[in-house]
């Protein structure tokens, strides 16, 4: 019983994570793109899975679909952009406890840090593109 729940939970999580990745790819694209383009930038996802997720995101109202040529193109929706961006700025700008409870990806850099990172990024880091 607990094992089955564990597996179910893992499956649900994996599905949620893939949904997040598809949404991130759409936003990164910067304009309407086809499902094939989305699939290219979501490592390890099958085409049909990407299509299913895109449909679900459309149903949720997070993504719009438009007919173009023989297929569809998809674009992210930012209808509440003003409200949301304002909310996020207030989250971050309050500083102190408010900023401390957010697990931020990167913290601020000093000038010295910036130079060091530029070096690391363009020098020692193996570039794979």
């Amino acid at each position: 019983m607990p094992e089955r729940n564990g597996r179910g939970e893992a499956r649900r999580r994996a599905r949620g994570e893939l949904e997040g990745e598809v949404l991130a790819a759409l936003w990164a694209a910067g304009g309407p793109v086809t499902a094939a383009v989305v699939q290219e930038s979501v490592p390890g996802a099958a085409y049909t899975t990407v299509l299913t997720i895109l449909t679900r995101l459309c149903d949720k109202g997070l993504v719009t679909r438009r007919r173009e040529g023989r297929g569809h193109v998809y674009a992210p929706v930012d209808d509440q952009a003003g409200v949301v961006a304002a909310g996020m700025h207030s989250l971050l700008d309050e500083g102190g406890d408010r900023a401390a409870v957010l697990a931020r990806f990167v913290s601020d850099l000093s000038d010295e840090d910036e130079q060091l990172l530029e070096q690391l990024l363009h020098g020692e880091l193996p570039d794979r593109e």
Binding site: R15, G16, E19, G20, E21, L23, V63, D78, V84
Partner: peptide
Amino acid sequence: GGDLAVVE
């Protein structure tokens, strides 16, 4: 979408 919220 899933666990991710994107803000413009």
